[in-house]
Amino acid sequence: MLIVQVIVNWLLLGSLYAAVALGFSLVWGIMNIVNLAHGAFILVGAYAAYWAFTQLHIDPFLGLPLTMLLLFCLGWIVQYVAINRVIRAPFLMTFLLTFGLDLLIADVVQLLFTSDRRSINTAYSGFGLTLGTLHIPFDRLLAALIAVLLTAALSLFLQRTRTGNAILATGMDRDAARLMGIRIDRIYALTFGLGAALAGAAGAMLVELYPFDPSQGGVFTLRAFVIVVLGGLGTPWGALAGGLVFGLAETVVPLLPGIGPGYDDAIAFALMVLVLIIRPRGILGKAFYA
């Protein structure tokens, strides 16, 4: 039965990680920007959900659309005001800019909410499905389902809608997209807004599951990076595949004799190095996106 529990834990964690990386993957794939402020957007999502829960008694899951809308607007504005200026600049410029944004946002969050750890306890926290010794917490199950749903929704949006196709086209060939009459500045703002909204969704779900403090943004940027490298750019499903591989490592490695828990960040780094050596393009990765 232990093995089934491990598998269940892995699937729940892996799917959740898809949500962590989804927006990061979209922005990287379409805009060719490694957004170091991604973790900060997750942070804002987490604290927005925390604030809405403690002040307005809005359940983080029910409030998800609101959190996403808030982060969408934040991402849109950040893109228009800041990112637009460096979109064609060398990689280092976008690194510096998004790194600065990350610091700025994390500082503002800390100013507003102090550096105390925060967590949410809903009425259903701790409840779940129990089958014999197997236990599936409701909140984790819901978060995993929503993460998969978001992946599917993003994929459908990109593949099936006119605007989604315009986003993909802009990612594949910016000048050809302009020749089609696509306003790429708007496409970039939309893409960055969507990336932030997805980060916000991840944050709102994470704060429901784990205690949170303002120093954690960077950790999630790193994880998103590793997940995308593992899964490859090119499709939202890459984020899910990468999330599952990453979740597997984080689930299994602590069970190995002589290791134990507490090495999550080390695992992330080690995985990244491994993948970069073995498969520089990731697992599902296609070349076109980047």
Binding site: M172, A176, L179, F288, Y289
Partner: peptide
């Protein structure tokens, strides 16, 4: 304008 080298959106 049909650009040199076609410039199709190859994954669509």
């Amino acid at each position: 304008h049909v650009p040199q080298g076609r410039r199709l959106f190859s994954a669509l």
